[in-house]
Structures are given as C-alpha cells and as structure tokens.
Amino acid sequence: MNGGVIPLGGFELGLAASLLALAGALSWRLQMGVERRLLVAAVRAAVQLSLLGLVLQQLFHTLSPWLIAAVAGLMLAVAGYEVWSRQGRHLKGWWGYGTGMLSMLLSSVSIALITVQVILQPTPWFHPQYLIPLLGMLLGNTMTGIAVAMDTLGRETWNRQGEIEARLMLGEHAIEAIGDIRRSALRAGLIPILNSMAAAGVVSLPGMMTGQILAGGNPLQAARYQILILFLIAAGTALGTASAVLIASHRLFDKRERLRLDRLN
C-alpha cells in the first residue's frame, strides 16, 4: 500500500480541539479544576508546534548551517531550563543550570552528531530533516532522565545528610559516603527508558514509528528507525545521567570532602 499523507487543515484540527473542549467541560462539570491548565497547555502546544513547523520549513529551504546551529542551541537551552525547573532541590547558581545543560550537550548533541555523521550520512550531514528531529527526540528523553536523576540526588542527599556525614566522620571518602545515593539516582534516571524499551511494540506503539506509518512509510523501515532511536536514546540517557550525577555529586562536596548542603537550595 502506498498511501502518502492525508493532509490536515484547520477543519480537521478544529474537530480534535472540540474533543479537547469536551474534556475541559467534563473537568469543569466535575469540579476537577484542571480546565484552565488544560487550555493553557493545549494553546502552548499548538503555538509551539506550529512555530516549529514554520521554522523547520524555513530551515529545509535555506539549509543554513548557522540557522540550524541556532535552533539546536535554543532547543538545548530550553531543555536545560526544563531540567533545572524539575528539580526540587538544585545546585545554587550556574551549577544548577549548567550541570544539566552540559550533560545534555555531552549526551544528546554528541550522539545526534555521531548519528548523522556515521550512521545516517545525509547530504549535507547537517540536513535539518535528520538532525533536528533526532536532536529533539534525544533532548526530550535525556532531559527526563537527567532531571529525575538530579532530583533524586539532591533530595536524597538532603534527606540523608546524617548518614552521609556519619560515614565522613568515620573517615570514609566522599565518594564512598554518597555512593548509595549516587547509584539510586542513576537507577531512577534510567528506569523510564529501560521501561519504554521493554514495552516498545508490545504495550506501546512508540511515537516516532506511529508518525512514520501515518505518514505513509514502510512499517518495517519505521520499526528500524524506531530501534535506532531507542538505542540512541538509551545510550544518550545513560551518558547524560551518569555525567550529571558525577558532576552534581562532586559539587556537593568541597576540597576537604565536607558535605556542602549550603550549595543546594
């Protein structure tokens, strides 16, 4: 079957929006109190995605490497802010924002670059049709892993101060004293991607594969792309989470291996 894409217009999207309005009405009727947030979130999603569509169209047209780099940089900056805002206790100052950003730069950006250079090899290699969606997927997923891991690290360190300091008092190194917490932060950050790999294709139809099939793509090719993406996301999340936990836990101690909770807020 060679379907191609059924074009969507304002009318079709309006129909979908009316379904959402129904959900909002239900929330209002049952006094669930989420109708306002539903509206805001829906408008945000619509505006952001439409803008992205416009920008991508422009990017595909001009193929300007500078413009592509600027869009990628903006995506990274926003993802960094998201990571920062999702932590209950984050590092004070630039460390809080910078740790997440740097970890995503190390993981998502480097893996996206490796993928277009070595695996997909489009011409030009920075063609936005590949680079931007790949980067988006990677950032979106590593962002979650890094945020969860850093949140766990900050929260557990705060709550288990007594335990950590007890170990320091008895002459253990900072790395030993915070070892358990570091491990549980890493695990917490990796669980979402491990779960989604295990459930992929059985419980859930991953978004990208669904999209390719809807767009008329060959299901087998779509499956291969999805496998590629899942592997990249898992690698990126592991790399990003590990570097975030390493940097942040290092920052929680000073040169004399004292626990510095004053660096958290």
Partner: peptide
C-alpha cells in the same frame, strides 16, 4: 593530610548517631 585520613585519626562522635 587528606581530609578522610584526618577524620579516621580524629573521630568525632555526635550525640545522635546515624546508620546506613
């Protein structure tokens, strides 16, 4: 001295202990 080595030689025992 490295901090950990110092604390192994000069141990502080707080009134309330924590166990890991």
């Amino acid at each position: 001295l490295p901090a950990a080595q110092w604390r192994r030689q000069v141990i502080y025992v707080p009134p309330v202990s924590h166990w890991w």
